[in-house]
Write a protein that binds this DNA or RNA. Structure first.
Lengths: 226, 226
DNA sequence: TAGATTGTTAATCGATTAACAATC
DNA sequence: TAGATTGTTAATCGATTAACAATC
């Protein structure tokens, strides 16, 4: 039992990767891409760590979850490591994305240039407001939410973003799930429930400011803040 | 030495509060506010935990970092707990906020309604584009970035948001710091450095999608994703 | 060769969970 | 009273750091 296939050693047979490791992976990737733009060919765990405020040991440990990407005595080739991390994160392919909600935030996200570099392409937007349906925003066609199932199938959409008012978010989540979407980024400031197999990431803009507020006030007080 | 002042017992004399605890605090607050809107007067650690996917023990432990807010045998009064958490997070007061950058994202954030409920009020926007300076967006005046020091002082602005292109972010960060800003939310997809006493929170929208992508692909593969 | 840096193991540190006396 | 629920301590679990042999 317990087939060991390809992967060599690494921390454990099939250790579940900590969420914190994955979020650092994205930061390593971002920093590596900047290093390449600045003309660097290679880097090291200590350089990467210094740039991001992590220890060199942590950088090596994080990467070791997934394989051997470096060269002892040398370091890491930036482009090799970039390729490796993109493969791990799944951003070595194209991800057609659906945007639900074309209010302030939805429209801004439709125009956001940063997604495309990682392979995310918003291919359709959805709304229920007849004033908005049929329009084209930033080159993206706005469909009625009722058309989600067909459009999602046609464009092989696997990921969706929810940028609707809090009160509508759960309904949208349900519709995304039944349209076969596999992952959702929720920008609405509410907890939504989705079937177990549908992954979700929540982004609450007010909460980010709250975290900041906490660290500002607690710096002044007991100095507990970071 | 080591003056013990007001605070009673709690985990340790002045235990530094883990970052993860603070982010859950914001989620408790959001859920409590929803409970109140739905007509609930009180709740319990197990209800709060169930709604958010945490254990009841974790909810109690998190709150116990800050004091005794509940009643054994009874639970927590929603409005008392809301008041307590807002005080802890520092959102029991008004925070005038500066928005730097009035592109897609900056404009969307200027119109975002969710901030005001937690006391955050964007009182001034800044840009360097002469086409934009002088305009009023969503009721907020756009100043030239050079005017940041005076405007920040006049409006007692302590927090800033950076919504400019990656290449401009570090310069904006420097200017915010010298204008006396104490905390920054950085939406630009780069690492910025700030003086030690200036707190920061980074929000990278592409990274959020990457985290989602990872958990979608790793669910299908080895089931490591969450 | 000497110096640098990786991947990995063992030691430390911190956070979560379980359990329970105290309280209503 | 019996049942419910808190705050807190001790036990478990997981993540980070330190150290070092292997490698270039």
């Amino acid at each position: 039992m317990s087939e060991r296939k390809t992967k060599p050693s690494s921390p454990a047979p099939d250790a579940p990767v900590p969420k914190a490791v994955v979020s650092r992976l994205s930061l390593y990737l971002r920093e590596l891409q900047r290093l390449v733009r600045d003309g660097h060919d290679r880097t090291s765990s200590s350089q990467l760590g210094r740039l991001l405020g992590f220890s060199d040991a942590q950088v090596r440990k994080d990467l070791a979850y997934f394989g051997h990407f470096g060269h002892p005595g040398i370091g890491y080739r930036c482009d090799d490591l970039i390729r490796a991390i993109r493969k791990i994160l799944g951003t070595d392919r194209d991800w057609p994305v659906a945007m639900v909600g074309t209010g302030n935030l939805g429209r801004a996200l439709l125009g956001y240039k940063g997604f495309s570099h990682q392979g995310f392409r918003i291919v359709a937007a959805f709304d229920v407001d007849p004033q908005r349906v049929g329009a084209t925003i930033e080159g993206v066609r706005v469909f009625h939410l009722d058309q989600l199932p067909e459009v999602a199938t046609d464009h092989k959409i696997k990921l969706g973003m929810i940028a609707v008012p809090a009160g509508a978010a759960q309904n949208v989540a349900d519709r995304l799930a039944s349209a076969g979407i596999e992952g959702v980024v929720n920008f609405a400031p509410v907890t939504i429930s989705l079937p177990e197999h549908v992954r979700q990431v929540g982004v609450d803009l007010a909460i980010e400011l709250e975290q900041l507020s906490f660290s500002v006030v607690s710096r002044i007080a007991g100095n507990g803040g970071a």
